[in-house]
Design a protein around this nucleic acid. Structure first.
Lengths: 164, 164
DNA sequence: CCGGAATAGTTAGAGATGCAATCATTTCGT
DNA sequence: ACGAAATGATTGCATCTCTAACTATTCCGG
């Protein structure tokens, strides 16, 4: 254990950022769920559809990594979407263990309509908050923090997972 | 309905901020859970302890509002903490419906130790990412966004809930 | 003061998610 | 080429959270 005697000043600033990020996430999440409910989608399902729209025929494992969700969670989400006719599984021709997931025309249609509403609402909420040039600075800072956290995950994070 | 013909440029910037915030939240959340697991705490339990440390004898409903969690969720979290001897319920002398929740000495002790590790890790992760003056700017931007989202919730958010 | 409305808290049921175990297939070392 | 290890996906189980219904108490209008 490293005993920290960080100044309480830095400490307080970090706490503040931490709490703000959490609060913002909760607020955004809440808004998202309200919008997507109109289209019968959960947020997780919506994110899968978004990824599939970006790149068709992704594997479940790939989706799992990109969404930072357990593979089993992705299996179930794809089950739901498939049951609703929004996506389809197809066997991978090169690896018979793998499944490729693709958007159906119905899935593409639902995504297009949901995304229109979701993004419009999102844009409205952000542009009310920050000017255009502020958004740029904000993105830069968010990116720095994000990349740094990913680094920490790879260097410090992993060893902590499995203690024994 | 306001029909938006926002430029796709703004749109892209908003999407970027949105995705970054989500990704950062997931990364922070993941790190939090790893740290707190060492102390047998879930993130939700930890947050309750933090609130109780700030102000002893809070009602369950107050905790529910501050954590943005359903009342039933708070009931169960307090159940768990009480079962573990970290908090205690005591009747409100003025309102016999209400329960006041207080930290026990054991709870205060666990919180103190968990918080030391958690905050130390948090400070390390943030200070690796952003310089001190950058953190100030970051806090300013986060605050603006947060407050604006809270406003949106009160003005735009509520009516959208029940579209019928 | 009485009775309906509101409020504090709990309980029940359903959905979402993670972990661990499992099966089928692929990859790799020898 | 064979067997062990790794990988893709699924399933079972446990946990967390929400919504809705319910009980007990308080508030408030007449």
């Amino acid at each position: 254990m490293i005993q920290a005697d960080f100044s309480s000043q830095i400490d307080a600033a970090v706490q503040q950022q931490y709490h703000l990020i959490h609060a913002i996430y909760v607020l955004l999440d809440d808004g998202d769920r309200r919008v997507l409910r109109q289209f019968g989608l959960t947020l997780a399902q919506y994110r899968v559809l978004l990824l599939l729209d970006l790149e068709h025929g992704q594997r479940l494992t790939t989706l799992s990594e990109r969404l930072l969700r357990a593979k089993s969670t992705i299996t179930r989400i794809v089950d739901q979407l498939e049951h609703g006719g929004l996506v389809a599984r197809s066997s991978d021709t090169e690896d018979r263990r793998a499944q490729r997931v693709v958007l159906t025309p119905a899935g593409a249609d639902v995504l297009r309509r949901a995304r229109a509403v979701h993004e419009e609402k999102l844009v409205r909420r952000f542009t009310l908050a920050l000017q255009e040039n502020e958004q740029e600075r904000f993105i830069a800072l968010l990116t720095r923090l994000h990349d740094s956290l990913v680094d920490s995950l790879n260097t410090l994070g992993a060893p902590v997972t499995g203690p024994e």
